[in-house]
Nucleic acid binder design. Structure first.
Lengths: 152, 152
DNA sequence: CTTAAATAGTTGAAGGTTAAAATAATTAAA
DNA sequence: TTTAATTATTTTAACCTTCAACTATTTAAG
């Protein structure tokens, strides 16, 4: 294993947990990405389509909040989706600072085509764990994630 | 919640688990990164120093395996660490295709300065969960990670 | 030995990522 | 109202990331 026991019991436990979280995420993410690439999309592009498809049109800023990324980043991802003709920018009349992103017909059609396939793929990957284990893992991850969000 | 229940019970469970894994990782990673940035290092630079400090000098290829990244990537990260005078390339005589990366005195000194601080920081973040929960989470994450590694 | 295949690392192109600075528009304060 | 502060998005610079093509070296086959 990576972390040699050198920092005391509590710290070793925390470091070990963090290493395993990072590795599990990296491995799962890589497998998921293989599937996404087969649709000729990048991971962040896919996530944006997913948000728009499931929740409807929203502003750049809202997309940033959902995906936990910076504004500069989202500008580029939306640019690239727009080049592909999958989304379009709608300039709002009410508040002219905001821009709403919506799926084009092509984008909506793609969304509908690929998401059930993708869900099947995720299910298959997760089946490394039993349903009970998945539920327990989800519970702990949620506690960790939400607990951290409030941290300084 | 993000995933609206539309894909059947098993798929919803898997999707929900995957969303929580991604969020917990993103949040923990962001908090950890704040600490790393205070040492004027990027995350991959920090990881390379960690490997070299804990495990000793190794080739570019071995670093790639440890960090699960591509060769082209590691070339750049090592370039940037070399510019900072933290590591150096050692051209091997035995097999002239390989290059060993080792810490400079400056790099070793930095490693020794920052790792106990970083371990404390990770411990603090992880303390959102009890020790028992951390152990349980680590166990499930390990099973997921190693189980996936063998998947097609 | 000579050629072919495999291995280690670098390079270049295309995207993603952040932080900081710059624009533009809205809201609040004096 | 005029000015100041805030909000939404874009731009830029620096770094990370992968994949595919390329160089150099080593190993294996004939």
């Amino acid at each position: 294993m990576k972390t040699t026991k050198k920092y005391g019991k509590k710290q070793d436990l925390a470091l070990s947990m963090w290493v395993k979280l990072a590795r599990a995420y990296a491995t799962f993410s890589k497998k998921s990405l293989e599937n996404i690439r087969s649709f000729h999309l990048t991971e962040p592009q896919f996530s944006v389509l997913e948000s728009l498809g499931h929740l409807g049109s929203m502003t750049i800023g809202t997309l940033c909040t959902k995906q936990l990324v910076s504004g500069g980043n989202m500008t580029l991802v939306v640019d690239n989706l727009e080049k592909e003709g999958l989304v379009q920018r709608i300039y709002n009349k009410v508040d002219r600072r905001t821009i709403t992103i919506q799926l084009t017909p092509k984008g909506l059609s793609l969304f509908e085509d690929i998401f059930s396939q993708h869900a099947k793929h995720i299910e298959k990957l997760a089946s490394v764990l039993s349903e009970k284990e998945q539920a327990e893992l989800a519970k702990l991850l949620k506690k960790l994630g939400t607990g951290l969000s409030g941290t300084k």
